[in-house]
Design a protein around this nucleic acid. Structure first.
Length: 106
DNA sequence: TAGCTGACGCAAA
DNA sequence: ATTTGCGCCAGCT
């Protein structure tokens, strides 16, 4: 069912969304990194939860991958996520990224 | 209010 | 190199 008014998002959520939206094209961050930059280094799972909710399609959530290199999940299908990443110049082998490109704080 | 879930991370076997 | 188990946190029912 649809909700008329949007739930007020937590500061953490807001921060996470901001961090992710700042990831440059061609770069990726891990869920853990995003969590750390959001103030809770151990909230990697929570980050996943937030991404899953897919607040704003404008947010490049496909640039957030797992620490082990696996692309992780994607609300619209892992396949799609991989496509997007390759499209940005990243090399993915069997669902995992060869070289992780993190960006220093922008 | 309390409990369950999951787009994770890491250590151990 | 792989697989299994446990911990952690915010959101949802």
């Amino acid at each position: 069912m649809k909700r008329k008014r949007n739930q007020k998002i937590s500061k953490f959520t807001s921060d996470v969304l901001r961090v992710v939206s700042r990831i440059p094209r061609g770069y990726v961050l891990t869920y853990g990194e995003v969590a750390s930059r959001s103030g809770n280094p151990k909230a990697c799972r929570a980050v996943g939860t937030i991404m899953r909710k897919n607040y704003n399609p404008k947010i490049p959530c496909h640039r957030v991958i797992a620490q082990d290199g696996l692309v992780g999940g994607y609300n619209r299908g892992r396949r799609r996520k991989i496509l997007l990443l390759r499209r940005e110049g990243l090399v993915i082998k069997k669902g995992s990224l060869r070289q992780k490109k993190s960006h220093a704080v922008v």
